[in-house]
Structure formats: C-alpha cells, structure tokens
C-alpha cells in the first residue's frame, strides 16, 4: 500500500505523562492525603515491631502517664498500657477493616450494579429497588441492630459494615453500565457476536473504572468511621484487641483527667477519614471524563 504509513510512530504515553496523574498531582489536598495514608499504612505495618511494648501488657505503676513521657511517647492508659503501641495496633485493625470493607462492598456493589444495569428489565428494577430500600435505613441503626444480634469479631464487623455500604457502589455502577451499554463500541461488540461476559468485562467495566475508584476511596473512609462508631458503642471490635473506636470508648471516663486518651485516637480517625476523602476528591477531579482529552 502506498499510504501504509499515515503518521510517524509516536512513543506511547508514559505513566508520568498521563494527564489524569498530572491533574491528581496538582490537587494539593489529595497529594497530602495520599502521603498521610501511605505514612499511616507504613507506620501501622512496621511500627509495632519497633515498639518495645506489647499492646496488652499492663503496668499498674505507670498509669495515666501524659504524652511526651521519656519512655512512653504518647503516654499510657488506665491500665498502664503504652498508648502509641496500642494506637499502631489499633490502626492495623481499623485500616484493615476499612480496606477489607471496601473490597467486599466493591465486589457486591459491582456485581449487583452490573447485573441490574446490563440486564435491566424487571430483574434490574427489583435489584435497584432493593438497593433503595437498604438505603432507607439509617446506617447506624442498621449496624447496631445487626451487631447486637451477632457475636462481634473483626470478620463479622467487616461483613456487617460491607452489608451496610455496598449500595452506593451498586448505584454508581448501575448508572455507568446502563449508559455504557448504549455506546457504539458496545453495540459494535454485540454486532460482532460477543457474549455478555465479554461485553461486560472488556467493553463496559474498563470504562467505568474512574467513578468506581472514586466511590471505593470514599467507601474506605466511611468504613473506618463506621468501625469506629460501632466499636465506640461497644458492639464492634472487642477489647483487649485495640481499635481506634474502642480506644475512644476506653477514654470516655477520663475525658477530664486524661483527655489525651481520647484526643490521640480521635486525631488518627480524623486524619485517616479526611485523607481518604481528599484522595477521593482528587481522583474525582483527575478522572473526570469531561476533562479527559481524546
């Protein structure tokens, strides 16, 4: 062919030149949030090994030490346990619950949303009305009502919070799938005789990644918060296993005498939740399809 080459071969876009990443890096709060979360993850993963204390080892002589003590950096609690050690161990639990809930509710939400959006009809309507019905319950009552009935453990807490938080993702996915199903490239795949599984996995879901990622990020923040408040109310992670929520609960009685016991886990929760929310905002802006150049 004479016109076999219409343009010289240009180099492929590299990751750091990707416009979405550049937009994300311009979002200052999102970058700060990312750094905060990465630091927290790093600290809770390796931190406990560096600490000389066990999270459950008590020391009655060193009770209620204030922060910045020579041996206990963040002080000690009413049983003389090291607050920093407990905070790091609690962070493992709380962050792990957050991520696990995100993965589980993504799995449920993507499945339900895809089935409802792709097949539509009576099945889709029934599924989405069920989602609406689930969303009618205030999540705190839903969480407390179910957790009062079951024996709380980390696993059961994860399942419980997931059961109360997959609906948002299902809605996002359903709306995306419904609109992507009508795109010409999806119709083209149908015209080629592609099966549903192929159309969903190859044409639809890859193009729905952006809003799903945003919803997932916000989902982590909400899950951390949800774990905190059910643990705070005593239905969540049970002592002596520390979590940020039950550290707050322990601190309740000493708000006047030892306020740092409440302030320290409070800061950790706030930092984690706001960081995830900022990351979510940054991702939303960076992945906005209207800003994506062709």
């Amino acid at each position: 062919m004479s016109n076999a080459t219409l343009a010289p071969a240009a180099p492929r876009i590299r990751l750091f030149q990707s416009p979405a990443l550049r937009r994300f890096l311009r979002h200052r709060l999102a970058v700060i949030g990312t750094i905060t979360i990465l630091t927290m993850v790093l600290l809770v993963v390796i931190g406990p090994w560096l600490m000389p204390f066990e999270p459950t080892s008590t020391n009655i002589r060193n009770r209620f030490l204030p922060p910045f003590d020579s041996t206990h950096l963040l002080g000690t609690d009413p049983l003389g346990r090291d607050t920093l050690t407990r905070l790091l161990h609690a962070g493992r639990i709380s962050l792990a619950v957050g991520f696990a809930v995100m993965i589980l509710s993504m799995a449920i939400g993507i499945f339900v949303g895809t089935v409802a959006g792709f097949y539509g009809g009576a099945l889709g309507a029934a599924l989405m009305r069920f989602v609406d019905a689930m969303l009618c319950f205030p999540p705190i009552f839903l969480l407390l009502a179910i957790s009062a009935l079951i024996n709380p453990s980390v696993i059961s807490i994860i399942i419980l919070i997931s059961a109360a938080s997959w609906m948002e993702i299902a809605r996002v996915v359903e709306a995306q799938v419904r609109s992507l199903k009508e795109r010409d490239y999806t119709v083209a795949a149908e015209a080629l005789g592609a099966r549903d599984r192929r159309i969903i996995l190859r044409e639809i879901l890859p193009n729905a990644v952006a809003p799903i990622v945003v919803a997932a990020t916000l989902n982590v923040a909400n899950a951390i918060l949800a774990e905190s408040y059910i643990s705070f109310l005593g239905f969540g992670v049970q002592p002596p296993t520390p979590s940020w929520g039950n550290m707050l609960q322990d601190a309740q009685g000493y708000l006047r005498s030892a306020p740092w016991l409440a302030i320290i886990p409070g800061i950790a929760i706030t930092l984690a939740v706001t960081s995830f929310n900022f990351i979510g905002d940054g991702l939303r802006d960076a992945l906005d399809p209207r800003m994506e150049n062709r």
Binding site: R183, Y185, R202, P206, N207, R294
Partner: peptide
Amino acid sequence: DPYASLNPKA
C-alpha cells in the same frame, strides 16, 4: 461516529 465506536480503553 468514529469517536464513539472504538473502546477508548482497548
């Protein structure tokens, strides 16, 4: 529409 008929992620 050649802008709509190709999957942008493929």
